[in-house]
Design a protein around this nucleic acid. Sequence first.
DNA 1: CGCAAGATTGAAGTACGTCAATTCCAGTGG
DNA 2: CCACTGGAATTGACGTACTTCAATCTTGCG
Lengths: 239, 239
Amino acid sequence: MPNPLVRKLEQFTKLSDEEKRVLEDATSDVRVFGPRHDIIVEDDRPENVHLLLEGWAGRYKLLPNGDRVIMAYLIPGDLCDIHVALLNGMDHSIGTLSPCRVAFIPRERMNTLMEENWRLARALWWATLVEEAILREWLVTVGHRPADRRVAHLICEMLLRSKAVGLTEDDSFELPLTQEELADTMGMSNVHMNRMLQQLRAQGLITTNGKRMIVKDRDGLFGFADFNPNYLHQEGGRA
Amino acid sequence: MPNPLVRKLEQFTKLSDEEKRVLEDATSDVRVFGPRHDIIVEDDRPENVHLLLEGWAGRYKLLPNGDRVIMAYLIPGDLCDIHVALLNGMDHSIGTLSPCRVAFIPRERMNTLMEENWRLARALWWATLVEEAILREWLVTVGHRPADRRVAHLICEMLLRSKAVGLTEDDSFELPLTQEELADTMGMSNVHMNRMLQQLRAQGLITTNGKRMIVKDRDGLFGFADFNPNYLHQEGGRA
DNA sequence: CGCAAGATTGAAGTACGTCAATTCCAGTGG
DNA sequence: CCACTGGAATTGACGTACTTCAATCTTGCG
């Protein structure tokens, strides 16, 4: 199985064997977590950068009123926190959503790796810019789309992101989240999330089978969600 | 007047005279725009990176239903689009909100500049990570805070960001936006934005004088907004 | 001084939240 | 193999924070 980070970065630029080796080497310290387990919490200044190899995790904050806000989903190939290689500390927490396999990369190692190899640094930067683009789209979705299209849009995105790391089968993928977690992500109540999912099923756009999300009418869903995948920047990078 | 980009990056790390000179040199091609003028539009692959020297601009998208969504405010010192130095194209547009002075930096120049100077590249990367952190906080705000606190939170942020580039006087700053633009930012109607501003005035937290926003009770406003400035990463960078 | 954009107000509708049951289901132990 | 259990999904009734529409009032500016 190829390293999912390598796979992801190669969407942006071809990596040399040497570069791939460096990345592979860095991801040798692998640890396993159960679901709902914190990897880093706010204000930490961890000594490691974390790369998700298997499972889903999420960035989140807890509000004084008790609300949990999920601001991003992390899937295999995603780096949790190059931030800490550059920023002062975490302004949010990261926790697993499903069981996960996570590679721990020492922060210093990451730093020298980037300093010594501009191409690699650039590829990693590219990955954070894509993350930022996703965040912008979520902001649009949460702020300006009605609840049903919000849910539809999220499903479209996670279908494509899952596909990009080889985790789809036809148009279905594992969505290992509860409706409450989905609701905390899209800024709505779990009750309403439930109703919107039912509606999408009734519209014939999706089916679910346990934790598996099956997109029955891909074009229909994309259209309904007003989904433009350009923000995922998946077309393969610049020459 | 010092270059606002230099000023900003020095929040992260001390720059050498040589590094400052390189940045100054790069920002020699300056152009002026009136308000509501596009600098880059979606799907562009512009030949220049744009640095805001004076005025306010915003990242936005237009939705099929006609909604305009403003996803970020750019103020002096902010880079509009290092994205295009790395990504395939713009997934959103950038337009001025007030009259602006903008420096045009050739994309290729930016690329070689970063490639040749890792410290500078790192500082620029840091800036994009801060931007990402702001985006996360907006997502929290828009998705999970009631409208009155949403507005309050935005005012807190823009007060601190303005202060960081020397654009405040006591606790007041220029907010050159219409209520409709503010509403498009926070995902609410202009009518409701108007009412929330009135409420904040009635609570004695703010006053306005034309386009000037005056924070009358800073602690009160911070408290009401549940504002934690950690996400702005303004304490000065790592050693 | 006059005009257009922006700010403000009121009234009426609605998409969503909250609360509280009830049902479903995967996992566990007997 | 089945009964038990606790979390998740689902349902219904009801309340409310927002939106929309439409009018009026204010302000900056030529």
